[in-house]
Design a protein around this nucleic acid. Structure first.
Lengths: 199, 199
DNA sequence: CCAAGGATTGAACCGTGGTTCGATTCTTGC
DNA sequence: GCAAGAATCGAACCACGGTTCAATCCTTGG
C-alpha cells in the first residue's frame, strides 16, 4: 500500500514531463526551435513557466531530451524501412526515400533537427543524431562490402559523407521553404554511384 | 585641393574598417565566432567598442562582411587549385585536397565558416558560401558531363551533395577537435565514385 | 593660433529570455 | 478533519552582450 501513493506521484510526475516534451515537440514542428521559449512550452503544456524546472534542471537538458526522442523516431523510421529490403541498392533507396519523405512532411521539424541554430548543448545532441544515422548506414555499407555487392571502402566515412550529402541537399530547400520531393530520384542515383552499387 | 582632405578622411575610415575586419578574422581563427564579441573585436583592432559602430551599423552587418571575405578567400583558393588541372578526376582531387587541407590548417575558422552557431543574418551569408562552392563544383561537373568524362547527371544536385558530404566529413572531426588529414584519400575516392569518374 | 566639425571614447543603457523562489494550492496519511 | 509535504505558480531576478550617446580629442581651414 505504501508504495501506491509513491507510484501515483511518480505517474503524475512523468505525466507532466511527458506533457512538456510533447508540447516542445509540437512547437518545434510548428515554429522551430526559435519558437520554443520556456514560457511558450509551459503554456502549451498547460502549466506555469517555473514548473518546467521541477522536471528539467535546464532548458538545454529539456531540449537535449526532446532532440534525442525526435531523432530516435527518425532513425527508427529509416532503419525500419531499410530492413524491409534485401539488396543494398534497395536499402539505400529506402533510406533516402524515408528520410527525405519525412522531411518534406514536417519541414520545420526537419530543419530544426538538421540545421537550425540552437544552444551548443543541444547541438551536441544533434551530432549524436547525425552519427546515429551514419552508424545505421555504415552497417549496411559494411554488409554490402562483405557480400561483395559494394567495392572496398571505409563504411564509416562513406556513411558520414552520405549523411552530409543528404542533409545538405535537404537543408537548402528546407530553409528556403520552397521545394518538392522531386530531387529524390537524383539523390538516389547519387548515393548509388557514391557507394559503388553495381548497375 | 579641397578633396585631398576628404580623401585622407576616407582613407582613414577604410583603414579602420580594415582593422576591424582583420581583427574579427583573427579572433574567429583563434576562438571562433563565439569569441567575437564587439568589445573583443574593438580591443584587438585598437579602438573603443563604440567606434565599431561608426563603420558598421550592426554586428550582423560586420560579420556578414567578414564571412563574405573569408568565404571568398576559401572559394578562390579552391578554384585556383582546380584551374591548374585538366581532367575531371584531377580537378576534384584538387578541390578536396585544397578544401580539406586549408580546413585542417585553421580548424577553428573552418568550423566557424561551416557550422558554428551564429546570428541568422550571418547564417544567410554562410549559405551563400556553400552555394558558391557548389556553384564552382557544378561548373566542373557540367563540363565533365559535356565532355563525356562523367555520366549524365544534374550538376547542381551533385555539387550540392558533394559540398554537404565534404562539410559533414570535416565538421565532425573539426568539432571534436581531434583529427588529421588521413581521411582525405577516402574522401577523394568517394567523390570520384559519386561523380562517376571512369576508373 | 583659434574655432568648427567630425571621429573616438567607453561607461551606461536596455531588451531578451532563462532561471529562481517565496507564496499558494493540492494531495496524502493519520 | 488536519497537519505535513510535495507540486505548482508566476512575477521578479539576473546575466549577457549589442547598442547608444554625451563628453572628449584631433584634425582642418582660415
Amino acid at each position: 500500500m505504501a508504495y501506491r501513493s509513491t507510484d501515483r506521484v511518480k505517474a503524475r510526475l512523468s505525466a507532466s514531463r511527458q506533457r512538456i516534451i510533447t508540447a516542445a515537440l509540437e512547437i518545434m514542428a510548428q515554429h522551430g526551435y526559435a519558437g520554443c521559449s520556456v514560457a511558450a512550452v509551459a503554456e502549451r503544456a498547460g502549466m506555469a513557466t517555473g514548473s518546467v524546472y521541477s522536471h528539467f534542471p535546464t532548458k538545454a537538458d529539456l531540449f537535449a531530451e526532446v532532440f534525442r526522442i525526435a531523432s530516435q523516431r527518425e532513425v527508427d523510421a529509416v532503419t525500419r524501412a531499410a530492413a524491409l529490403e534485401t539488396t543494398m541498392a534497395d536499402r539505400i533507396t529506402a533510406v533516402i526515400e524515408t528520410f527525405a519523405g519525412r522531411a518534406w512532411k514536417s519541414p520545420r521539424l526537419a530543419y530544426a533537427l538538421l540545421a537550425e541554430p540552437v544552444d551548443p548543448a543541444v547541438d551536441a545532441e544533434r551530432l549524436v543524431f547525425r552519427r546515429a544515422y551514419a552508424h545505421a548506414i555504415a552497417g549496411y555499407v559494411a554488409e554490402g562490402v562483405a557480400s561483395g555487392e559494394l567495392p572496398c571502402q571505409d563504411p564509416d566515412l562513406t556513411a558520414t559523407a552520405l549523411v552530409g550529402a543528404l542533409g545538405e541537399a535537404m537543408v537548402g530547400p528546407l530553409a528556403a521553404g520552397v521545394a518538392g520531393p522531386d530531387t529524390i530520384p537524383g539523390l538516389i542515383t547519387f548515393a548509388h554511384r557514391a557507394l559503388g552499387v553495381s548497375t
